[in-house]
């Protein structure tokens, strides 16, 4: 099982507006890029041709809040702008 298989079990009502955005310019100086291993939904992907090497997709986000803490709140990083998905949108868990 990979986390991508696990993510197949999750449902979303995807909003047209991104609730999280990434300012790639900040990623250029971020050396360890912890988003690549700390995001539990692999929303951050390393892509050479992207500015700072980061491609971000908000659609599969499970809304854990980790990237707000390890990136948005870190004065040395700060590429992430974090907010909650609009009412009725985003991840929908069945079990909890």
């Amino acid at each position: 099982m990979s986390v991508q298989d696990d993510l197949e079990t999750v449902e979303w009502d995807v909003s047209e507006d991104a609730h999280i955005t990434v300012d790639n310019e900040q990623c250029i100086t971020c050396e360890d890029k912890p988003c690549l291993h700390l995001c539990p939904a692999e929303c951050f992907d390393y892509q050479e041709d992207q500015e700072g090497g980061i491609y971000f997709a908000y659609e599969p986000c499970v809304e854990c809040g980790a990237c707000m803490v390890f990136c948005a709140n870190d004065p040395d990083k700060g590429a992430v702008s974090w907010s909650k998905a609009e009412g009725g949108k985003g991840v929908e868990f069945d079990f909890g």
Binding site: V3, D6, D32, K33, P34, H37, L38, P40, Y46, F70
Partner: peptide
């Protein structure tokens, strides 16, 4: 999780799902 192991981009860190 940020520093443990060497699976991250900066050769530090491990994904919790792994």
């Amino acid at each position: 999780l940020r520093w443990l192991g060497d699976e991250g981009y900066g050769e530090t860190g491990t994904p919790l799902y792994s």
